[in-house]
């Protein structure tokens, strides 16, 4: 936060007073906005006991946590699959063979261009018609993998490209083959530098599993909506609680991402 403090003088007595006035005015504006939202919700009985009492029921929580488990399961499977696909894709993208390179380019730009929701709907329609009568979870995993492997491949590629040429040249000059130098020298270093971006992509995958809502796959968001068929008065409350659960998972990943970023910076400063 302090990195931009060059933009203004260190405030003197008048400046401090001014800042305080702005802070009070801005804070008051935000608080009034929040308060009016909360008050209106209160007026319409959104904080009544019977709207929230569903969450005192352990079975409801069991159902929600099942949804959370389904979300995390899909995120883990498609995260692992996308990463596994993205490294070969990135290598194909920088391959010297014209045909391989073009194929990877077409794959990457095609799946980056299609909205994920459309891809999920398409997979849910296409795969059964060509004979894969899988459960909804599989369609979600396939669509997420196709989409995110293309995005990850670009991250991996930029990670490989950002490494100095000398590393690879040195490896080749001590007699390693191209593949060996990639596997032992380039990839380990590239993956370390792009770790924050990879975690960011995992975060995106976790959040994108919520699109399974429409196939329908019973992940967290869908479960929260199903609760409202059991307790119709708690529609908004259930959506809010599920958003909080997503927020907790995301916050965890964001903290890990921050830790990795600072550790990387510390390592870079040591070198």
């Amino acid at each position: 936060m302090s990195e931009n403090s060059l933009l203004y003088e260190r405030p003197g007595p008048v400046g401090l007073l001014k800042n305080r006035v702005y802070a009070v005015a801005g804070g008051a504006f935000v608080l009034i906005l929040l308060w009016s939202v909360i008050f209106r919700l209160y007026q319409r009985g959104q904080f009544d006991h019977d709207r929230w009492s569903v969450f005192l029921n352990t079975q409801v929580w069991g159902f929600l946590l099942n949804g959370l488990y389904a979300t995390l399961l899909v995120a883990a499977i498609s995260g692992a699959l996308s990463f596994a696909c993205s490294v070969p894709l990135a290598l194909a993208r920088i391959s010297e063979n014209h045909l391989i390179r073009k194929t990877a380019e077409v794959y990457i730009s095609a799946f980056r261009a299609v909205p994920l929701l459309l891809l999920i709907l398409f997979m849910a329609v296409l795969l059964p018609t060509v004979g894969f009568a899988w459960p909804a979870m599989a369609f979600l995993v396939v669509a997420l993998t196709l989409h995110h492997s293309a995005l990850l491949a670009e991250i991996v590629r930029s990670g490989i490209m950002s490494l100095e040429r000398g590393q690879r040249e040195a490896a080749v000059s001590i007699g390693m083959t191209g593949g060996q130098s990639m596997y032992y020298i380039v990839l380990p270093q590239a993956i370390r530098t792009m770790m924050p971006a990879l975690i960011g992509q995992l975060l995106a995958i976790v959040q994108d599993t919520s699109l399974g809502y429409i196939i329908p796959y019973n992940e967290l968001l869908r479960c929260s909506q199903l609760i409202s068929t059991y307790a119709p008065q708690s529609l908004l409350q259930a959506a809010f609680v599920s958003t909080l659960l997503y927020g907790m998972i995301s916050a965890l990943l964001m903290v890990v991402q921050y830790k990795v970023k600072t550790r990387n910076r510390a390592v870079a400063n040591m070198a």
Partner: peptide
Amino acid sequence: AMRATPVLALLIMVVWGLPKLG
């Protein structure tokens, strides 16, 4: 907060929530 929220969850809360606000 926006980074931590899936956009679909946000959309659903806004679409269902605004009518509740009147």
